[in-house]
Each structure stands twice: as C-alpha cells, then as structure tokens.
Design a binder for these strands. Sequence first.
DNA 1: AGAGCCGTAGCAAGCGCTTTCTACGGGGTA
DNA 2: TACCCCGTAGAAAGCGCTTGCTACGGCTCT
Lengths: 407, 407
Amino acid sequence: MTVTLSDVAARARVSPATVSRVLNGNYPVAAATRERVLRAVDELDYVLNGPASSLAAATSDLVGILVNDIADPFFGIMAGAAQTEIGGQEGAVAPESGRQGSAATGTAGGTAGTASATGGTAGSMAGTVGAASPVGAGRAAGRAGSEKLAVVCNTGGSPERELTYLTLLQRQRAAAVVLTGGALEDPGHIEAMTTKLAKLADAGTRVVLCGRPPLPGSDAAVAALAFDNRGGARRLTEHLLALGHRRIGYVAGPAERTTTRHRLEGHREALAAAGVPEARDAQGRPLTVHGPYTRDAGYTATLELLSRAPELTAVVAANDTVALGACAAVRERGLRIPADVSVAGFDDLPFSVDAVPALTTVRLPLHEAGARAGRLAMGTEAPPPGGVATIGAELKARESTAAPRHA
Amino acid sequence: MTVTLSDVAARARVSPATVSRVLNGNYPVAAATRERVLRAVDELDYVLNGPASSLAAATSDLVGILVNDIADPFFGIMAGAAQTEIGGQEGAVAPESGRQGSAATGTAGGTAGTASATGGTAGSMAGTVGAASPVGAGRAAGRAGSEKLAVVCNTGGSPERELTYLTLLQRQRAAAVVLTGGALEDPGHIEAMTTKLAKLADAGTRVVLCGRPPLPGSDAAVAALAFDNRGGARRLTEHLLALGHRRIGYVAGPAERTTTRHRLEGHREALAAAGVPEARDAQGRPLTVHGPYTRDAGYTATLELLSRAPELTAVVAANDTVALGACAAVRERGLRIPADVSVAGFDDLPFSVDAVPALTTVRLPLHEAGARAGRLAMGTEAPPPGGVATIGAELKARESTAAPRHA
DNA sequence: AGAGCCGTAGCAAGCGCTTTCTACGGGGTA
DNA sequence: TACCCCGTAGAAAGCGCTTGCTACGGCTCT
C-alpha cells in the first residue's frame, strides 16, 4: 500500500542507500542516477516517512514556537515572522511592506505561483523541496535539507500546557524551540522550565526566548531576546507626567508574569523619579488592578478604577488590547478621551493606530524580534553576546493622551 | 547518553515490551509491575522517542492546523479553539467567558496550577500524560494515549506553502489536518489540493475543512464546515439598502479566494434582488476593488473609491480588518462615519465592537467553528450528514452604518 | 485430580530510513 | 604499464519502539 524507499530504489534500479542520498542531497550521486531516482520518486508519488527518517538520523526538522495566546496578534506577529524565517519561503516574498504584522495574507496578485501545479499530481516534494521539479537540466547541486517544519503551539498561558508542549517537542526531538512572550514567575514553574529547557538544549535542540527575559540560572545555550518593557513603560509614564498628569490609574496584566511586572516597575520608576506618589483611592488603596491581557479585563478594571477614583486623569493599560477595553469603559462613563481621561496602551498592535482617538502606546518591534528569533532557531544568525539581547521599546505618543483639563 | 526504553526496562527489571505497555496503557499490566516501571521512568527521567514510536506504531499524535495568516485573529481564534479541543486541556479551563477569542490568556488567578512542579524535575510526563504523578495509590487505569500534539502551520496565503505543509504533515503521518479559511480558486491548485487531501485521507489522516467550502470533487472522507459567507454578505447589503443606500463601494479581498467570491456574490444578490444596479464611477467602471485582507489594502482601496466616486454613501469591506483601513481613509477625506459615509465589515472580530463608531459587520462564530473542527479532527464528534455543514453568519448592525444624508 | 483458561510477561520480528564501511572502475601519475 | 586515488554505489547494521505470538502459573470447572 504505502510506497517506501526501497520501492523507489527498485524502480530506479539502485540501492535504497542511493535513493536516500539523492533525497538528502548530502552525498555525491551521479547526475544520471539522480535523475533516474527523481523520476521514480515522481512516478511512484513517494513521500518520505518522517518518523523513520528522524529515527534513523536521530534528528528531526520540527521547530516549535510556543505562544501564550494564538488569538492575540502580539503573538501571531512574532510567530509569523519566526515561521517565515524558518520555513524557507520559496515564494521569496518581498521583505516587508511597512506596517508590522501585515504578513503575506491575501497574496492577491495573480495565479502565477500555482502555475507549476496544473498538470498531474503537482509537486511531490518528496525529499528535498524542489527535488521534484521537472527532471530537466540545470538544477544546481540539490540543496541540503535545510527544510524545517515550523509549527506554533498554543499554551493558552497555562504553565502545564507549556511544559507538556515542551515534552512533546522533546519527544519529537525538535530541532529548535522558540518561546515567545512573558514568562510565569512562579518559582516551581521556573525551576521546571529551567530543567526542561536545559535538557532540551543538552539534547541538541536549539532554544530561543523571544520577548521573554533570560532564565534566572542563565543556562547560556539558551539565547534570549528580551523586550525593554521596563524602559518603554517608564518612558510612557514620563510622557504622561510631562503632560501634567498626577493621578494615573494602572490596569496591569496577570500578577505573575514577567511582562506585567516589568511594565509596572517601569511605570513606578517614572513616578518615583518625578517624585509623584502612586495614585491611591480614598481608602488609600493603590489604583492598580491586575487582570488577564484581554479587552474585557481592561473594561472591567477601568470601570472599577473610575468608580474608586473619579478624579483620575489617565489610565495606563497593560497592553493595547486592554487599552481598548479601557477606552470603552471611559466612554461608557460619559467621559471623553483624551479631554477628560487619557488612555495609553503598550505593544502598538496594528489596530492601535486606527483606534479613535489613535492610541498612545509603546511600540515593540514584534516582527523584527520574531524574525530574529527564527534565525537564531535556524542557527542562521549568531546569538547575541552573553546570549541575551535587549530589544528597544519606542514611545508612540498619539491622540489618546493629552494634558489633563485642570493641569 | 540518552535514556531508552530498555534502560527503563532494565531498571524496573521487566522487558521493554512491558514498559511500552505501561506507557501506552493499552494492555493489562499488573499494578505492582506498573508502579515499578513508572518509578523507573521517573527516576531515569525518561522521555519517549517520538519518531521511534511513530515508526513502530505507524501512527503519530500530530495534528496540523493550517491557517492563512497567523497574525490575523480570524485564524487565531479558530485555531485556538480547535487546538483547545484537541490538545487535552488538563487545566479544565472554564468553557468560555463571553467574548469570542478571549482565549485563556493571562491565566491570572493564582499559582495553583503549578504547585505540583515545585520539588525536583517537575513532571516528566514521559509516556502518557499524568503517568508521572506521585507513584501513590488511586490512579485510575492509565488512560489510553488520546494525547495529541496540535500545531498550527502558517501558510501566509501561499498555495505552495499550503501544499508543502501538507506534504510535511503527510511525512509525519499526521493523525489529522484542519484547513482553515478560504481556499484559493486556481484550478491547478485545487486539483493539487484535492489529490493531496485524498491521499492524506487514504493514509488514515482525518481531514477537516473549517471555514472553507467543500472540495469540488467532494471526496467525502473530508468533512467541511463552511461559513455562510454569501448569506451573511447578502443580509449586510440588504441592511444597507434598507437604510437607503444606493451607491455602495465594495473593497473586496484577493480575487481568487472562495471567501472573496462568496461575499461578493452575496452582495450582488442583494443588489439584484432590490433592483439596484451595482455602483459605477463616471467611466462606468464598477466600484469594486480587490486587494489583500489587510488594513492597508482597505485604506488604499477606499481612498481610490472615494476619488473615483465622491458620491458614494457606503463602503462595504471584505472583512473587519479591511474595514478599519476603510474607516481611516474615510476620515482622512474629512468625511464622517456614518453621517457622510457608512462603513461595514465582516467577521466581527473582537476589536470591531470597540471601533469608533462601533463597526456594523457580520458575525461568524469562529470559536464555535474552530472547536467543532477540532472535535471532528479528534473523531470526537460525528461528521455532519453529507460531510458538509454550513455555519450561519449573523448581521450585527452597529453604529458605523446609518441612513445616507440625502436619502 | 486433571484440563482449560485467564491474566501477565517476554521474545523477537520488524517499522522505513540513514550511514559507515566496503567495493569497484577509471583516469591520472610516476 | 602499474599503482593510487577519487568518485560513486551497495551491503548491512542499526535507530528505539510496538505488538503478535508464545509461555507460564495459578484458578476454576468438571
């Protein structure tokens, strides 16, 4: 039923070894032989058995990209960029159009790309990609199999799933693993992760952190691309302070995430530097509310903040999505943005510039970071000195923030 | 270096076969023996070799979810829902909070979930998940390995990548494949896809289409969950017509996508039914512009539309993202929404309700569809009669559409 | 008391591929 | 002309796991 390597070998009148070598392109095979093999592959419509080859070679071409929430463009953009960098973009898409996140959707243009598929059984792509091209002449020395299968795994923010996926990837002997976004700060989980990642690295899996701070024990081997969340947050709050705000509410993310903590710390740094005390309500409770990174959390928290302290002149949100909810809450209270209350976000997701008023936020080069992580995972790019690189965060002051009325 | 099954067997003083059976839990093993094995697994920190086991068992637990653009929540929501349904959510997260797409991000709450990990080498999860729990008493008959690794693959809308991923998944002997979103209508590509999917199905891979129309040759075996794009689009345009609009511009998606065509057809159906001719500019060219599903495309196209036909009173966009761009363009022209120009989207992505003014759109139950696709992929749910189910699309009339001024 | 039987465990044969080592020609070199 | 070496192909030994079949006690059944 299933066509195997030896079937191809038989048909091409060569040994299985030769077929394998043609497919992997890492051993000299005479041109004539190769053509014969390739033709047989095509005719039999042969597809390599991945597990078998991974087993024999003790490596696989799987690269896992872990994200906390696949429905959130924050992760989607990084994952997409990384995946593009990893999965060999045959189409050779143009670099980038301009807006971050404008992945290659659509691909409107024409029918061009599919042309080759018209006839029969379009491209078997058996072993090496491109191997199935018309058996014609001028094909260069069949590229080595740098073809990787980049897949993204959605942890949903659950530490168990994070670990489970890592184990599953370890089982598959993944070539690399990219962890995106903030990490959970629970000591137990950190230890478990450190152990697991060390084990993966030991086994030869390249581990890359993208938008996540390096591990405590800095196991080297694990390259980290960290966002300057603290610095960005500081500049954002400085901006607000410069506008004259003194009573600023803060809708933070989940309490145990590094991202949440760093942004909050940056915020507080700015306040401290300016000698402005953290805003508190009548009961003396700080005007900081934690919640998940969702629009609804922003909405709810802002409503609460506004009730507890009607005199608030600005609300800083954990990220743009949360900010959207905050805006909705502010409006529902009959207040105008930014006339009555300024609102700021973080990340500068694509929709932020289109919000009304356009959202003041902190831009994180998600696409760039993801691409770089992808290259690190491929081993295409040298890891940063010390294994850690910090990626800048740039303040984007737009219309959702302005001087408070009674400034 | 690497711990193998026989190492565990040796340590537990049983045969490798027994260890395998303990791990797979599909063959009776005496409780005492099982405990011994489990302990050995734990002590040696054994991790199953995926490729080896897939090879021997001729199956794998990989499930691929193909999406056109991972940075687009439209896909993210479906993929997330499907993945949750597939990847066994141990955490038993609550059903759904209310807004679609609010995946389990954050996971704020407490530290609870991680508790078990504190000690040493938290959960090895070697074979069966849960197998590594404290070797104590009351563990039920170690569940069969229904554990699947759901991964999402980003095609970026490229037909070649779509085919490549399918081949890669075929190589891995994937247990199932879920294809989300509109399909390309190029004849060559359709044929290639049909062939490829048939081959996958033949090989025992479950194939599910989610938000995509069934294949032409309706190969059965392939379950399809199609959105009623046509009906939704028709109702949307009917809504506009009812408000009194007669000159409606249309910013369509890429020309060769099923989604694009169906929505456009629904739009035209409504016009035809109302006896309203399709809007045209002074030169008689129809006011329909094609472009990718991006914000920028919507922006550019709308600018063009407005230039060619300043008398336009409404713009219908291919989807919400495009609509956002359209709104920006309308505003840039100094026009108000909906006073001067009404704008409508499609999909009802989470941000649409927060747009200002709130976007009139057509709601697609993305989460529900994704979850159902996930269940179909798992074989947990019976395929719809005929292999095809159409999922309704509901008009969401909000503030971005209103009667035209000179109605 | 003898014959099955059931519950468990082990044996061993692969699964389909990669890769080391060996083999074989032919051409260049001495 | 004889020797080597290079280029190319094949033989065969696994990679680590699954699973059909066999083996072997101890029980129940007659």
